[in-house]
């Protein structure tokens, strides 16, 4: 069994006075693609943001590659080799494709896939055709690819991928699935949040199911497929 790259224990998160996450615990091992599942508002994005250090009020332990990061700022966590792709894309619309990549670029990291703009353009030929186009003049799908590429430029060990299939047409969803499988082959570890069971089935090894900020299930995709209760109660199936 591979080493654990990310471990979360007893994670609680708050927005103002509202308590959003309750003692969330999860583990991701090197090379895995793990799904964080649940409905809108279940706490998937909050979990990701908490891991990435983007929330001001959290409690609990988070360790990444053996280092505690629960109190670290996002840029410190990013420098340790964790990448984050937000659900709402958030490309820098005034910056060109190359400039967007420049913002994300970090030095090479041992044991992580090394990315350059050229390599990314091979993975996403669309982007290679428009290196000088401002991010704001791109289609939704292209922006999504740019956001992923921008994060990969930091040569991360682990990428948090927030709802890659949210709100996009099934045809695009299939492209996203292919991309994730390609990244996995390169040796990247991925934690992705997802509502769509079919999508998760296609690309993930294991899943955690959240409901109202609690982890309600953890196991392999096969186990999840076999568990009708969890699927009916906590997923929109």
């Amino acid at each position: 069994m591979q080493e654990t790259i990310l471990e979360v224990n007893g994670l609680n998160a708050f927005y103002g006075r509202a308590h959003i996450l309750f003692d969330v615990g999860l583990k991701v091992r090197k090379g895995e693609v793990v799904a964080l599942m649940g409905r809108n508002g279940a706490g998937k994005s909050t979990t990701m943001k908490a891991i990435m250090g983007m929330l001001s009020r959290t409690q609990g332990e988070i360790s990444f590659m053996g280092n505690p990061i629960a109190k670290s700022a996002p840029h410190v966590i990013s420098k340790m080799g964790m990448g984050f792709v937000p659900e709402d894309r958030r490309v820098f619309t005034d910056l060109t494709v190359l400039e967007n990549l420049e913002v994300g670029s970090q030095s090479e990291r041992e044991g992580a896939p090394h990315w350059t703009a050229e390599k990314l353009f091979e993975l996403f030929p669309n982007l290679g055709e428009m290196p000088h186009r401002p991010g704001g003049n791109m289609s939704g799908g292209e922006q999504q690819m740019l956001t992923v590429s921008r994060t990969l430029m930091g040569n991360p060990y682990l990428v948090l991928l927030d709802e890659p299939s949210e709100g996009v047409a099934p045809v695009i969803v299939e492209q996203m699935a292919n991309m994730i499988m390609a990244l996995k082959k390169q040796g990247l570890t991925i934690l992705l949040s997802e509502q769509n069971l079919q999508f998760a089935d296609l690309v993930c090894d294991r899943a955690y199911v959240l409901e109202n900020g609690h982890v309600r299930f953890e196991g392999t995709m096969e186990e999840l497929a076999a568990n009708d209760d969890v699927r009916r109660n906590y997923l929109s199936v």
């Binding site: 990435m52 983007m54 840029h75 990013s78 937000p86 958030r90």
Partner: peptide, 8 residues
């Protein structure tokens, strides 16, 4: 926020 999640 995005800039900081990219390590800056």
């Amino acid at each position: 926020e995005m800039v900081s999640t990219l390590g800056v």
